[in-house]
Computed example of a mutant assay.
Amino acid sequence: MALSYKTRKRLAVLVLVLGLPLYIAAALFVVSLFERPSIWVEFAVYVALGFLWAIPLKSVFLGVGQPDPDDDGPARD
Rank of each mutant, 00 (worst) to 15 (best):
L52A: 15
A25Y: 10
V13T: 12
V30C: 02
L18H: 09
P74C: 08
L28T: 00
K9M: 08
F34I: 14
G65Y: 02
A75Y: 15
V41C: 04
F34D: 10
F34E: 12
D70S: 10
L16F: 08
A27V: 06
K58F: 06
G63V: 01
L11Y: 10
T7S: 07
Q66E: 12
K6H: 09
A26N: 06
A75Q: 15
L14S: 15
D77R: 13
E35V: 08
F29P: 02
L49R: 02
L57K: 04
P56S: 09
V13Y: 11
F43K: 06
A26V: 03
F29T: 10
V30D: 00
V41G: 10
L22M: 13
W53K: 05
F34S: 13
A75M: 13
A12C: 03
D77E: 10
L22R: 07
L3K: 06
S38T: 07
R10W: 12
V47H: 05
F43S: 14
R36V: 03
L11H: 06
A26H: 08
R76T: 13
W40I: 13
G50R: 00
F43T: 14
E35D: 14
D77F: 12
L3V: 03
I55N: 06
F34H: 14
P56E: 01
V41W: 15
R36T: 12
G73S: 01
L57D: 04
I24P: 10
L33M: 11
K58P: 01
L28F: 05
K9C: 11
A75W: 15
K9A: 06
G65H: 11
A27Y: 00
E42Y: 01
L3A: 05
R76C: 06
I55D: 03
P74D: 07
L57Q: 06
V13L: 15
D72T: 10
L11T: 13
P74R: 09
L49I: 05
I55Q: 04
L28V: 04
R76Q: 14
I24L: 15
A54H: 02
I55Y: 09
D77K: 13
R10D: 14
P56V: 06
V15M: 14
G65R: 12
P21W: 06
A48Y: 03
F29D: 08
P69Y: 01
L52G: 08
G19Y: 05
P69D: 02
I24S: 14
V13P: 05
Y23P: 07
V17L: 09
A2W: 07
V64Y: 05
V30R: 07
S32C: 03
V64G: 09
P67S: 15
P69L: 02
